[in-house]
Design a protein around this nucleic acid. Structure first.
Lengths: 136, 136
DNA sequence: TGGATATCCTATTAAATCTATAGGGTAATT
DNA sequence: AATTACCCTATAGATTTAATAGGATATCCA
């Protein structure tokens, strides 16, 4: 299942990407428009800022704004920050590889074999979709 | 993340599929060979039996055995029983469809749009892989 | 300079899910 | 009749997720 965090994060990013100009949008407005708990969204936007997707401005007229152009924001990067590893098991993960302690040999592991295919399929999707592709 | 239940279930199915004949294999043997908690595996095999993948025999010389030929066991079916819906959000699920209560219009939802692509990619993988493909 | 605004940060809680264990019941075989 | 091995329910511990609370910090503007 996709976590609410990822769902909300994607919606917020799309909302920001679909704005005409790049004037900061307040958390409250995004939360209202997208039906998201404001406090929860607050922490999500903060993590998106820390990972380099968003910029922010404090005080009156402040808010969040996209740093890059939507077509430059790859879904691989967004998903890794919001949802975590793309692979369903650590032993097929590119960025978060970890050996299974119960599995003596990966080469002959059926789970490894299947999940490798799943990972590749998902990577293909996420690499070929940017924030721009999610709009409209 | 893939649940342990699914991981263990897949390993058990593969183990049974790679047997020479179709003599029943005991839970204890599968658990030992695949490094799985025996009691946990017990409940997994039971659910695989109830969903029509396995048969069982009680008493001495008893155990579990595959009902169909490995090449006839589709991963779509196995995954749905062990892991649940293949879709990452209910609004793009074929078998477990549910409308999002926070989303006014699916057609214009960015999450829906992306997850539809992910679902199709995963369905393609699971439809084109059988238990036979996981062996060796 | 001070008040209003809005992000930033930490901690905590409530709920749900996952993983595993316990303990006995039931059916089949020898 | 005893043994074997699956069958079934309940429960507990751990982890993760989702949300809330409360205040600190930075910015703007009159």
């Amino acid at each position: 299942m996709l976590s609410k965090k990822t769902k909300y994060g994607l919606k917020a990013l799309t909302f920001l990407a679909s704005q005409k100009d790049k004037a900061p949008i307040q958390i409250a407005e995004i939360a209202k428009e997208e039906n998201i708990s404001q406090k929860f969204l607050e922490s999500i936007l903060l993590s998106l800022k820390k990972s380099g997707f968003l910029g922010s401005k404090k005080g009156k007229g402040g808010g969040y704004y996209l740093i890059k152009e939507p077509q430059e924001v790859l879904m691989t990067d967004v998903m890794r920050v919001l949802e975590g590893p793309i692979a369903m098991v650590p032993c097929v993960s590119l960025n978060f590889y970890e050996k299974c302690d119960d599995c003596p040999d990966e080469k002959s592991c059926s789970v490894n074999k299947l999940m490798l295919k799943v990972r590749d399929a998902n990577l293909t999707i996420f690499r070929n979709n940017t924030l721009a592709d999610l709009i409209q």
